[in-house]
Amino acid sequence: MVGLKKHNFTKFFILIGVLSFFYLPILSLMIFSFNDSRSLTSWSGFSLQWYQALFENREMMTAITTTITIALVSTFVATVMGTLAAIGISKSRRLIKELVLSVNNFPILNPEIVTAIGLMLLYSSLNIEKGFMTMLLAHIIFSTPYVILSVLPRLRRLDPDIAEAALDLGATPLQALWKVIVPMITPGIISGALIAFTMSFDDFVISYFVSGNGVKNISILVYTMSKRINPTINALSTILVVIITIVLLVVNLYPYITKKEIKEAE
């Protein structure tokens, strides 16, 4: 449109500004993971010693394993449970549907700290000792609602007769579920699983309140280490940043690449 061109420079400047704001801290974090000294502010030479220290640090390696294990297991359970629940919800009567959904929204709309102390109180009331299992259970509890919310819209768009068509053609209800319904809502399931995984992987507040006995995920470790900061955290973060960037790039570029291939094939 008329007169917009002269503003382009200002726009570009603003965008660069906000992107620097987002990325400079991450960049400095990554740079100082290669620092030769313990300092996080003054550069004294390149070294990989903090990466070595990271891999030799048992506590850190355990935290990484714990984080990944919990993220994978809780994602799997939450995805299966959330998908089945969503199918159930979509076929339920209106009243039940609304009731279940409003309870389901609680952990999403409540501050994390409230969910966290609620679970903490529950565990202690039931005399369950806090540890790995309580953390895992908590992660399943808080990520399932997100899976449900991401699967439901897909189900809503589903032709209501589709399952009946399958049954009519001789499929058992289980076969109809597995061979007809699930494939059609797969995009919703996948995005739900992705949300569940990242929620679990990054979680601090809830894990912090419901774990004990020295069970720590990466977030808890960073929190407890904040008093005795050293660049191993930088090294760990750098590795995470690189992995996440690669994964995101692949996920986001994949559609472009496949689309291109389809076009070329045509």
């Binding site: 801290p25 991450i26 990054d202």
Partner: peptide, 10 residues
Amino acid sequence: WINMLVRTYA
């Protein structure tokens, strides 16, 4: 997508 604690810590 990067851990909130890590970003704050930076």
